[in-house]
């Protein structure tokens, strides 16, 4: 007993090579870190670290370029799919991904999102949907649920005056240029592993120039939902998943 297992030949799981050593700035229990890791692991598995170019958004993941150990650009708010288009068109053999939150992708960047998908740009759009503006301190997002409280919907989102939560993944799945649209989460080991498989699939499709792939990750925001990480994951399962059901939205025919 008490045999020391901690030696290189026994290593089964470690931090992805496509992540830097930098400590993540995200709040405790925030899904961003796990989503980053799953994408980085997909890049590792496909051995495309040197062939991948990523685009960070404006929002909580604005500093994502510090964490992914691939060449990265920081885009203006909502413009990541346009930036990705510019990159992919001049370097079509590279793998290009955007990493965007709900405000970035589904509010200020709606036009860029829809048109990149409609053109079928061969890029991966990673969409983190936690129904709130995290970076600016908990304001209402396009994906905030009905009756969900935020600092700009303090009595809950009133559909009549504030509009409806936007299911943008379903919306872009309707576009002919969108090849693959799928929705996942990273709050349990099984879900995180599924998310990684979706990222890998999307990057493989990109290699085959199949069109735009969008992987939505329904995630939490413990700080702005004002819950512990465990509570926020439970709340997400009970409230977010019924409206944003996990699973494939559009798969290749």
């Amino acid at each position: 007993m008490a045999e020391n297992l901690i030696k290189p030949e026994n290593l089964v799981y470690e931090k992805s090579k496509s992540m830097t050593e930098r400590e993540l700035h995200y709040c405790p229990g925030c899904g961003h870190g796990t989503a980053h890791r799953m994408l980085a692991e997909a890049i590792d598995d496909l051995d495309i670290q040197g062939e991948t170019i990523g685009i960070a958004p404006v929002g909580c993941s604005v500093l994502a370029y510090y964490y992914f150990d691939v060449d990265m650009l920081e885009a203006a708010h909502g413009r990541a799919p346009a930036v990705a288009t510019g990159i992919k068109r001049v370097l079509p053999e590279k793998y290009v991904f955007t990493y965007q939150g709900d405000g970035d992708l589904a509010a200020i960047g709606t036009a860029e999102t829809i048109h990149a998908c409609n053109r079928g740009e061969n890029i991966l759009i990673v969409f983190i949907n936690n129904g709130i503006y995290g970076m600016t301190g908990g304001q209402m997002a396009p994906t905030t649920l009905e009756n969900m409280k935020s600092t700009t919907s303090p009595r809950g989102r009133d559909i009549k005056t504030m509009g409806n939560p936007l299911k943008i993944s379903e919306l872009v799945a309707e576009l002919p240029g969108t090849y693959y649209a799928t929705r996942h989460s990273v709050h349990t080991p099984a879900n995180a592993r599924k998310t990684k498989r979706a990222f890998k699939k999307a990057l493989e499709y990109q290699k085959e120039n199949k069109g735009t792939c969008l992987v939505e990750v329904v995630s939490n925001c413990p700080s702005n939902w004002k819950m512990t990480p465990a509570e926020s994951n439970k709340w997400m399962e009970e409230n977010m998943f019924p409206f944003y059901p996990l699973g494939d939205i559009k798969t290749p025919k």
Binding site: E3, N10, L11, V12, E14, Y26, G33, P189, R193
Partner: peptide, 21 residues
């Protein structure tokens, strides 16, 4: 048992997992 579940859900990548061969 070295299942790595803990490391997979760790947002901050702080856990490394080993398992006997």
């Amino acid at each position: 048992t070295g299942c790595a579940n803990c490391a997979v859900v760790c947002p901050d990548a702080v856990i490394t997992v080993y398992r006997e061969k």
